[in-house]
Nucleic acid binder design. Structure first.
Length: 486
RNA sequence: GGCCCGGUGGUCAAGCGGCUAAGACACCGCCCUUUCACGGCGGUAACACGGGUUCGAUUCCCGUCCGGGUCACCA
């Protein structure tokens, strides 16, 4: 019987849920769930300076909206708590001291100023810490400690040899130990660094699969040295290719705020549906065995496999996201769509009593983003001032010469209608075309233009007249007639 | 700069020694149509380069080039 798979999502509460982070969370969820395992949420707040008010709530909210339900976490507890690093603060120092006893770590009393100077004076970039305190005598250390000199604890890296590890995505990776810095494990404020807390927590929380972005690939050997020092089992590593954004100069770099709306909530505000976002980012770095593109979260869970994860970075493409969004919108029932679109209807129409279901039915097939709705329907509330040139359309064979008569005939026919319904308007205008001996388009174009004042509208003349209602429709048509007379 | 990783159309991507190198988005054209969409059909467009290995390389190896990541008392 093998161990239960456990993955964790460990965001730091900075008040922003980047889609890159969300994708990582999604894959962590999928790795766990596709293997029948558990998905844990842990808050990494060891940096007090970056802590942001309300950020944790935003994480909960985002995860919930994305459908990534965790099995253990600060809000719901679990047997490996606490799940907030600041609350585990006391756990880390003993482990660090244990490392010191094993000669795998040491006290460092260097001041921040000295380190800054070191960096400034370095000939080569990335020269790093000079290991100044690595070989202090026990007496010196005792002395400074008793004097209360502030200290940090650093990991004592081997000076020679190489460290090799297996990654489920990238394969075997080895790094010369001489490349590894004596990184800080415990900060002067007593908090652990991410580098240390992460290892201690993953082990004590029984995390079996560490899923994270490939930016951690080069620091993984350092973590392994820690696992080895403690004699702990090394987890399965699954490093994910990065999501990139396009820069102004055409180059690309790790997706960040400067690439525009990259926060989950930003995208939702832009009119993207959470399910569409999740679907899209699932496919950014992973591909199924077949060609399926539309996936619900449960289908993803079913089809997901680690060997489908790719190694090369991918660029976040808003066009493709929009396509997914459109697909999700089209898959809704009209009622669902009307409900989702309602806020945008209100935005454009205020409290005007339009039939939202009818609006939804003409809009649904042509909407890719909910935020596009208001501008498409604003003319229902208030007709824009338009130029009579709009009546001219080559394909519909309408000209300034024939339109007045066409529109007049249309108005008369419509005015004679006993009832004002979609079907009656439709039949009326179709009959009109027959009577006049012109194509449908020729009869409809002037009516639609006069009713809307726009060349491009959602729905045709019939739908627009129906939604507008008899009174307003006829008012607009007469206005069109006047405009043409001048 | 050192180290690590990557490199199939503009983008996401199949491919895992032998294929006319899939598919999707975007783009273009045609059809449908009362506009625009939707939908249908079709089209343009790719294995970074140079050496090997092999009967045969997109696929394996090496080098070059290009791209990215990383070198914090941030995570």
């Amino acid at each position: 019987m093998s161990k239960t798979v456990r993955t964790r999502f460990a965001p730091s509460p900075t008040g922003f849920m980047h889609v890159g982070n969300l994708r990582t969370a999604l894959y962590e969820y999928l790795v766990a769930k596709s293997l029948g395992g558990q998905f844990i949420l842990r808050i990494e707040d060891t940096d007090q300076e970056r802590k942001v008010e309300g950020a944790v709530d935003m994480i909960y909210r985002t995860m919930k909206r994305a459908g990534l339900i965790h099995d253990e976490g600060p809000d719901i507890g679990g047997e490996y708590g606490p799940y907030v690093q600041s609350e585990r603060r006391e756990m880390y120092l003993p482990y660090a001291k244990q490392l010191i006893e094993m000669d795998k770590a040491y006290y460092c009393f260097c001041t921040k100023e000295r380190l800054d100077m070191l960096r400034e004076n370095a000939d080569e970039p990335g020269a790093g810490y000079d290991r100044h305190c690595r070989n202090l005598s026990p007496q010196e250390v005792q002395q400074k400690l008793s004097e209360g000199v502030p200290y940090v604890i650093r990991q004592k890296m081997p000076l020679e040899g190489t460290t090799t590890f297996e990654d489920a995505v990238y394969g075997t990776i080895s790094v010369d130990n001489s490349e590894l810095q004596d990184q800080i494990l415990i900060k002067a404020d007593g908090y652990p660094t991410y580098n240390f807390a992460n290892v201690i927590d993953d082990h004590t929380m029984n995390i079996t699969h560490v899923v994270r972005g490939s930016e951690y690939l080069s620091s993984t050997p350092k973590y392994n040295l820690l696992y080895e020092a403690f004699g702990w089992e090394i987890p399965t590593y699954i490093h994910l290719p990065l999501i990139m954004g396009k820069n102004d100069d055409g180059s690309t770099s790790k997706l960040s705020k400067r690439h525009g709306a990259t926060g989950f909530e930003d995208l939702v505000k832009l009119g993207f549906l959470p399910e569409a976002i999740v679907n899209y980012i699932a496919l950014l770095g992973w591909a199924p065995k077949d060609n399926q593109e539309i996936f619900s979260l449960s289908e993803l869970t079913e089809k997901f496999s680690i060997d489908g994860i790719s190694k090369s970075p991918s660029i976040f493409d808003y066009d493709k996201l929009e396509w997914f969004n459109g697909e999700y919108i089209k898959a809704m029932t009209v009622e669902q769509f009307a409900a989702a679109a309602e806020p945008y209807f209100r935005k454009a129409l205020g409290d005007a009593p339009f039939d939202y279901l009818k609006l939804a039915s003409i809009l649904q097939q042509r909407t890719t983003k909910l935020t596009d709705i208001p501008e498409k329907i604003a003319f229902f509330a208030e007709q824009p001032d338009y130029d009579k040139e709009l009546f001219v359309n080559k394909k519909s064979k309408t000209t300034l010469e024939n339109v007045p008569a066409l529109l007049k005939a249309g108005v008369e026919a419509l005015e004679a209608l006993p009832e004002w319904t979609h079907d009656s308007i439709h039949d009326c205008l179709i009959n009109l075309a027959v009577t006049l001996g012109v194509k449908n388009g020729t009869a409809m174009w002037p009516v639609r233009i006069a009713a809307s004042g726009m060349t491009v509208t959602p729905g045709g003349a019939v739908e627009i007249l129906d939604i507008l209602g008899r009174e307003e429709s006829l008012r607009r048509l007469h206005k069109g007639l006047e405009k043409l007379a001048n």
